[in-house]
C-alpha cells in the first residue's frame, strides 16, 4: 500500500526550485546591501566600502560575520517567545512572495518539462496581496514584544502605513487585472509577451506610478521609512534586537525590495520578456536562461531606482505620509481604474 500517492518527482522538482530561489534571493539580498552602500557613496561623492577584498566585494560577508558574532541580547522584560518569533515572521513573509513569480518559461531536463515558477495558481495576484498584508506582523510583534515604547510606536506607525498603502496598491492592481483578464501572474506575463502586444506600462503608466509609490511604502523605504526614523524613534521597531535577529529584520527589507521589484517587472514590464526578441524561435533551455537574465536585469534596475530615491529624497512627515496615501493615492487609483474600465469598454465597442 502506498502511504501517500503523489508524484514524488514533482515534489523533488519543486523543493529544488524553492531551495534555489530562496538561496538566490538571500545571495542577491546580501549583495544588495553592498550595492546600497556603493550607490550611497557614489551619490554622496565618496568611495564607499573598499577595504574587504577587491573593490570591497567581500564587505557583505564581513558584515554578516560581524552580525553573527555579536552578542545575542533578549531584554529581560520582553515577551521572549514573540521576541524570537518576530524576525522569523518578517523573513517568512518576505520570502513567501517568490512562490508565484514566474522566473522564466520552462527548461527541459531529461525530457521532463520543468516550469521555472513554484506555483502557477489562478489567484496569483491575490496571493501576493495576502502575503503583503501579513508582512506587518513581523514588525508589529517584534515592536510590541521588545517592551520598549519607541519600538511600539515605530511598529504602530509601520502597521498603519502598510495598511493605508495596501488599499491604493490593490486598486492599482485591479486595472492590470481588467487589462489581462487573469489573476495568474504567468498568464499576465504571457499576455505581455505575445506578438503584437506591448508591456502593461504602455497602457498603465499612472497605475505603475501608484504601484511603485505603494511598493516604496510597503517596503519601508525612504521617503516612507517612518518606522525607522532614527531622529524621532532612536532606531525603530527593531531597536532592542541585536545579532542575527536584527540581521533578519534588515535582510527582510532587502528581500522585500527584490520581491516587489520582481512583481513590478512581471506586472508592468513584461516579466522575463526580452524586448524585440521572439523567444519561441530559440531552444527552450536557452530561452529560459535568457528570460532569467532579463528578469534579473529588470529587478536590478528597479533596486537601483529604490536606492537612488533613498539617497535623494528626504523622509516624509507622518501626517504628510497619511495625506498622500489616503487623499492622493487612493483617489488617483480609483480614477485610473475608472478610465481603464471605460477605455476597455470603448475598445470592445459596447
Amino acid at each position: 500500500m502506498t502511504l501517500l500517492a503523489v508524484d514524488w518527482l514533482l515534489i523533488i522538482e519543486k523543493l529544488v526550485l524553492i531551495a534555489i530561489i530562496v538561496f538566490a534571493s538571500l545571495g542577491i539580498a546580501l549583495y544588495t546591501t553592498f550595492a546600497e552602500r556603493k550607490v550611497a557613496a557614489v551619490l554622496q561623492d565618496r568611495p564607499g566600502p573598499n577595504r574587504a577584498g577587491p573593490f570591497g566585494l567581500l564587505q557583505p560577508f564581513a558584515d554578516g560575520l560581524k552580525l553573527i558574532m555579536k552578542e545575542e541580547i533578549i531584554p529581560t522584560n520582553s515577551n521572549k517567545a514573540l521576541f524570537v518569533l518576530g524576525p522569523g515572521l518578517a523573513m517568512t513573509a518576505a520570502l513567501m512572495t517568490c512562490s508565484v513569480i514566474p522566473w522564466s518559461s520552462h527548461v527541459e531536463i531529461f525530457d521532463r518539462k520543468v516550469d521555472l515558477q513554484i506555483a502557477d495558481i489562478n489567484i496569483g495576484i491575490l496571493y501576493i496581496f495576502g502575503v503583503v498584508s501579513l508582512g506587518v506582523y513581523g514588525m508589529m510583534i517584534g515592536g510590541w514584544a521588545s517592551n520598549n515604547k519607541f519600538s511600539l510606536m515605530a511598529a504602530l506607525r509601520g502597521a498603519s502605513q502598510a495598511i493605508s498603502y495596501e488599499l491604493a496598491m490593490g486598486l492599482s492592481l485591479i486595472a492590470v487585472l481588467m487589462l489581462s483578464g487573469s489573476l495568474s501572474l504567468k498568464t499576465i506575463v504571457d499576455g505581455q509577451m505575445a506578438a503584437g502586444s506591448y508591456w502593461n506600462i504602455v497602457y498603465q503608466p499612472l497605475g505603475f506610478i501608484i504601484f511603485f509609490v505603494c511598493a516604496l511604502a510597503e517596503c519601508n523605504r525612504t521617503p516612507f521609512d517612518l518606522p525607522e526614523a532614527e531622529n524621532e524613534l532612536n532606531f525603530g521597531y527593531h531597536q532592542e534586537y541585536s545579532s542575527m535577529k536584527l540581521g533578519f529584520y534588515l535582510f527582510s527589507e532587502y528581500i522585500n525590495m527584490i520581491m516587489s521589484s520582481a512583481v513590478m517587472a512581471s506586472l508592468y514590464f513584461g516579466g522575463f520578456d526580452v524586448p524585440f526578441l521572439d523567444e519561441s524561435t530559440l531552444a527552450p533551455n536557452i530561452a529560459a536562461l535568457i528570460g532569467v537574465a532579463a528578469l534579473l536585469t529588470k529587478i536590478a534596475i528597479f533596486i537601483f531606482v529604490f536606492m537612488w530615491i533613498r539617497w535623494t529624497v528626504p523622509r516624509f512627515r507622518y501626517d504628510q505620509l497619511m495625506n498622500l496615501g489616503w487623499k492622493t493615492m487612493i483617489p488617483l487609483a480609483l480614477f485610473n481604474m475608472l478610465v481603464t474600465g471605460a477605455l476597455i469598454l470603448l475598445k470592445a465597442g459596447v
Binding site: 489567484i123 491575490l126 496571493y127 496581496f129 495576502g130 498584508s133 506587518v136 508589529m140 510590541w144 511600539l152
Partner: peptide
C-alpha cells in the same frame, strides 16, 4: 485567499493594535 487578506491581514491587525 480572501479569508487570509481580510481576516488575517486586516481585521486581526486591528485586533492586535487595540490589545497591544
Amino acid at each position: 485567499i480572501v479569508n487570509i487578506i481580510v481576516y488575517a491581514g486586516a481585521i486581526m491587525v486591528l485586533f492586535l493594535f487595540v490589545i497591544m
